[in-house]
Amino acid sequence: MSGRTGGRWAAVAAAACAMAAALAALPPAAPRDAGGRAPAAASVRQVAVRAPAKCADPEASLRPSIADGPAVQRIKSRGRLIAGVDQNSYRWGYRDPATRELSGFDIDLVRAVAKAVLGDPDKVTFLAIPTNQRIPALEKGKVDIIARTMTINCDRIKQVAFSTAYFEAGQQVLAPKGSPVTAFDDSLKGKKVCTAKGSTGESELRAESHGATVLTVPNQLDCLVRLQLGQVDAVITDSALAAGQAAQDPSVRLVGKPFTTESYGVAMNLGDQDLVRRVNAVLEDYRRGGAESPWMVAYRKWLAADLKGITAPPEPKYKD
């Protein structure tokens, strides 16, 4: 997870197809770590069937442009950007119970898009979109963009268009400080592990449980409740979300390295090509400026405390 930049991308691209198809989280089990584990033969076959050779690089997006097309015109004439976000992911998109304001890394990104398109970061209508409603909401035109820790993969790029990757995360283990659990390995043997139902973590554990018993809960945050109540010994979730959990409980920490790689992108309707280019232009500006870039500022504000060691945003990739 930490500071992976251009060099890493070569390896990623090489295995991108297998990886990304597996990221769909639709097949029950699919390994995706390009460098680390040897994928099981069955899963490779599955991947080969599911993802045709065309999907070599799902993270590659359209080149940035600030020219107005029909989608940008639609947002301008409405005067508001409609963004689908999460309200429950601490540090990413969540509603502070005290201020009742939405905040987080994803929210800052949406505001940057609103500022670029409409000249005002507050001209946004935030809709809370549940995980499984992200693609339908875009297809039905309920929202213009989805910024909701959404992983780019080969299955999804057939249904929605993604911006360039704005964050790189991976499944990781969260355990109490001083726990014998040290990574996604045999230190999990005989332990109880919690993960969200239907998540990538669940399919990873189904493929290789390392001798752990698995408890699934409706939402990843429910795992932290179970961990605090002593009902489980460790949590497996996305490193980005795990950072949000660690931020809420100083006695837990992320252990080991992320054992998968997933890139987050801003999702839009397949037809809104002008909007995709516009958002990519915003992301270019967002990344620009080295340590003082808006991206790094947002990273330090929301994530650095629990997701240490990131020195730069992921490099963009373009397909045209």
Binding site: Y90, Y94, R95, P97, N219, L221
Partner: peptide, 8 residues
């Protein structure tokens, strides 16, 4: 101000 409260 922690969303963990909602989960509890």
């Amino acid at each position: 101000g922690l969303p963990l409260g909602g989960a509890y």
